[in-house]
């Protein structure tokens, strides 16, 4: 089964990667960390980066499902 995952990036991470979102297709279940690695050619996840799946915070070791939206972003600085 092919899993289709939307990957999004925000703020300084988006700027340094030069893109804000992409669709990725995977042939097997992956963790959030593996989604990052597949989407970024094995480049290590920068320190302090947070992750969300379907707009909820998750651990990098949690597993993604078909049609999930995975987001990576730096520590938040609102307020």
């Amino acid at each position: 089964m092919i899993m289709s995952i939307k990957v999004r990036y925000f703020a300084s991470l988006k700027e340094s990667l030069g893109r804000s979102e992409e669709e990725q297709a995977f042939g097997q279940p992956l963790t959030v960390r593996e989604v990052w690695q597949r989407a970024n050619a094995g480049k290590p996840l920068p320190p302090h980066i947070l992750a969300a799946v379907n707009m909820d915070y998750v651990d990098l070791d949690s597993t993604v499902q078909d049609n999930d939206e995975v987001a990576f972003f730096p520590p938040v600085t609102g307020g």
């Binding site: 703020a11 915070y57 730096p74 938040v76 600085t77 609102g78 307020g79």
Partner: peptide, 11 residues
Amino acid sequence: ALKSKAPFWKK
């Protein structure tokens, strides 16, 4: 909690 969890980023 907003300061530490709400996704906003300042430039």
